[in-house]
């Protein structure tokens, strides 16, 4: 694969993506592109269709119609190739609570095809960066939620994917840990890994390179945080969000 430099390389291309569950339209003609190394914020109220779209991009779910390419591969026919190039951290807890930190690393490293040395190196790097050396033999269930989320993120990117999909990674985490988590996201993006993140925290949205705001299955806004604030003549993304999401026609928890 020939990889052009800079933002010209589009790691995610979505054209007219539609996903229906029966008569319910979860994603209504979505169109967007995400460039390499970008931090892309995917915003929206509960039930707006964020997780549905993210699951399609990860190859966990098939779209009803539209063209979607992730890391250059087609989501209809090449889901397994996509999976080799992405990392995913789901909203639900993704580590095994009855295994230790290092056992989780070994398991996920193993099924991603890393060898023993690579797994060990990744584990040691993560433990020293997060200052968790003392925790390597602790069962996940005994760790505080913030640390679990950081470990889960490290697991999701241990195979050096092109894109990391993070579904509400900071839900239920204290402000200090959230700040540290975003530092991890920045480090990751600086290594050239594209970060595609959903969140409910509008202050976090300000940290993104570009954001999209979904309302009722449609993308209502898509630009840099600064440009969006200018367009809507408000001082924060929170106000942009409130303006757009004020009158959702549906209020359904997905």
């Amino acid at each position: 694969m020939n990889k052009p430099d800079g933002n010209k390389w589009k790691v995610i291309v979505v054209e007219n993506l539609v996903k229906k569950f029966g008569s319910f339209v979860a994603n209504d003609h979505l169109n967007f592109e995400v460039g390499g190394g970008e931090i892309f914020g995917f915003l929206g109220a509960n039930g707006a269709g964020k997780t549905t779209a993210m699951r399609i991009l990860c190859g966990l779910s098939k779209p009803t119609s539209g063209n979607v390419k992730v890391a250059g591969f087609d989501v209809y026919t090449q889901t397994e190739k996509i999976k080799a190039h992405i990392g995913y951290m789901s909203q639900r807890f993704s580590l095994y609570e009855d295994l230790t930190v290092s056992e989780n690393f070994q398991f996920y490293g193993g099924i991603y095809g890393l060898n023993r040395m690579q797994i060990k190196e990744k584990l040691e790097n993560m433990l020293s960066r997060l200052q968790l050396e003392a925790m390597r033999k602790r069962l996940i269930r005994t760790l505080p939620p913030g640390i679990r989320q950081k470990v889960a993120f490290s697991v999701a990117i241990m195979h050096e994917p092109e894109i990391a999909f993070l579904d509400e990674p900071t839900g239920g985490v204290d402000p200090i840990t959230r700040r540290q988590f975003w530092e991890m996201i920045y480090e990751t993006a600086a290594r050239g890994i594209t970060v595609f993140v959903t969140t409910h925290y509008m202050d976090e949205a300000e940290y993104c390179d570009r954001i999209s705001i979904m309302v009722d299955g449609r993308i209502e806004a898509l630009d840099t945080p600064a440009e969006l604030k200018k367009q809507h003549d408000v001082s924060s993304i929170n106000d942009v969000f409130l303006k757009l999401a004020r009158k959702p026609a549906r209020n359904i928890q997905l």
Binding site: C58, G59, L60, E80, K81, K83, A84, I86, Y88, S90, R92, F93, S94, L95, Y96, E97, Y108, I111, Y112, G113
Partner: peptide, 17 residues
């Protein structure tokens, strides 16, 4: 039930494996 199956399904692990 726990949700870890999602994390496995998002890896390139083959069904046979």
């Amino acid at each position: 039930e726990i949700g870890t199956i999602e994390q496995i399904n998002v890896t390139p692990l083959r069904k046979t494996q």
